[in-house]
Amino acid sequence: MTSLLPQSAPPTAGHPGKLIQPDWAEIVRITPETEGISTFWLRFIDPQVRERYHFQPGQFNMLYLPGYGESAISMSSDPEDEERLVAHTIRFVGTVTKNIGRLKVGDVIGVRGPFGTSWPMKQIEGRDLVLACGGIGLPPLRPAIYHIIRNREKYGKVTLLYGARTPKDLMYPDEHEEWQRHDIHMEISVDRGDENWDGRVGVVPMWFYNFRIDPRNTAVLTCGPEIMIRFVIYEGLARRIPAERIFVSLERNMKCGQGSCGHCQIGPYFICKDGPVFPFSVLQRYVNVEEY
């Protein structure tokens, strides 16, 4: 399989020569985000791992909680974080993540990674960008936002379409102002408002018609519920953005992160190593095959 997108170097956390043996990291900070979602800031205990570990925006780690198992979680922090901390914004929904939710600062968990392809930040330089995400789809895009801010002059118009269920579910509200200050245009919406909400109500793909798009020079990065992704793609294509410039991050059941356990396949691709980020052009054959 030839690589479709920027490929990761081999994982730098996790013991080579062992199939799935993580390195240990300490939880140094826990930031509650919304109901049932927190961000866990991790520092590798082994200084050598801390030194050599680097990730690209859009990649993920396998987090290991002994006795419960592993879960594939995207990084949500700045890849160039000065303290070399690695953050994961986690929704507590499964066996592993619910129990990660009970951990405290100072607790230790296992980490393998980074795995998978990344958002093609180099390839899309010079382009206008539409970042379209819903719910827990924002965290995997946040490292890309930090990268854009750090290299703001390399990108054209940047629009962030972000939807959540309710105003209380909007994540990273403290940072929105900062993002806007760096000329990131934000279109925020919720499925259901409350008494204080005077913003938009609706679903993310609707807001494609709120701003001008130059199809010859726009790239879309999207992450979120599959139904949202599907309609973001349709809107992008309807606005004549070519499929090769619509980048999608997919989620599947994963056990290994290295294209070995088989679980995450879609057609010929292993989402863990050929993805999670794909140009839509390669997925086009498969996305509308029912239950594929």
Partner: peptide, 8 residues
Amino acid sequence: FCWDATDS
């Protein structure tokens, strides 16, 4: 070749 990892 598919495999799963189980915990105990």
